[in-house]
Design a protein around this nucleic acid. Structure first.
Lengths: 137, 137
DNA sequence: ATCAATATCAGTAACTGTTACTATTATAAT
DNA sequence: ATTATAATAGTAACAGTTACTGATATTGAT
């Protein structure tokens, strides 16, 4: 029961998520999909984002800038939050599973996984910063 | 300018934060401090929590259960979110600075820090789970 | 101790991100 | 085609947080 039915709106949301690399918020998704479905409802966006996360067709990213972001990239990877421009960037690197072992070593409970986010400067902001330093010198 | 003035309410909030280990939400802080200052305003709680975070007298914890949590423990440490009871627990372990180096190795931008949270079972929930398995066997 | 300056407060309204509700529309199986 | 119902648009409700206002408490100077 509860058979899943196709919908153009959901399709469009999913396509956008898999194309983009900007890790959009619900509102960003809304504004994008609206180009193709001008009277899509914001509620529809939220409902489908939740749906896609449930179906493991997307990942919800949560860190505290007030709103959640969504990622259609299912390859395991980490993220960098740029202290310069505020953007979210992919950070391809080997899995950090070993930190689970480190954590388990001195803990009475059980470790089942981890979430990691890096803070720093994205390539572009890092470049800009270097130039500023040069000017000072 | 902008000299900081003492306030009983702020003092009470800070005391609660440094005593407790429950990593409270703003609302939990509110309900606790209300025991001593029955007509403290929720706005005052929020204002002071932000203030304490700014002054680095407390840390804001953000992961996606909708609301922020606060920690008066300034010692560097990590946290475990229990998949059983939903609680937040301290996890004392050596700093994981080395993962910054790992991340930097293949990244063009710069890494300045990281946030890590572990998922698993707290000591009590882990114990309960073991007992369940025993019964099955 | 009294006073003036102002940081902080209580109380309330406003704002933001998200979810729930309802009547209508689109999809899929018969 | 017909029918059952998943999904929709639009709107209202909700939760967490912030902003505003006039009153109060703290501080430093007299």
């Amino acid at each position: 029961m509860a058979t899943i039915k196709y919908s153009r709106q959901r399709q469009s949301i999913k396509e956008y998520l898999t194309e983009t690399k900007e890790h959009p918020t619900a509102d960003m998704v809304y504004n994008n999909v609206r180009k193709y479905y001008p009277n899509i409802s914001l509620g529809t966006v939220y409902r489908n984002l939740n749906f896609l996360v449930e179906q493991k067709e997307a990942v919800r990213l949560t860190w505290g800038d007030g709103s959640e972001r969504y990622d259609g990239n299912l390859e395991p990877h980490y993220h960098l939050l740029c202290n310069g421009c505020g953007g979210v960037f992919d950070l391809m690197m080997d899995s950090l599973e070993h930190i689970d072992t480190l954590a388990a070593a001195n803990y009475e409970g059980t470790i089942e996984g981890h979430g990691v986010v890096f803070y720093g400067k994205c390539p572009e902001c890092a470049r800009k910063e270097k130039q500023k330093k040069k000017l000072k010198a």
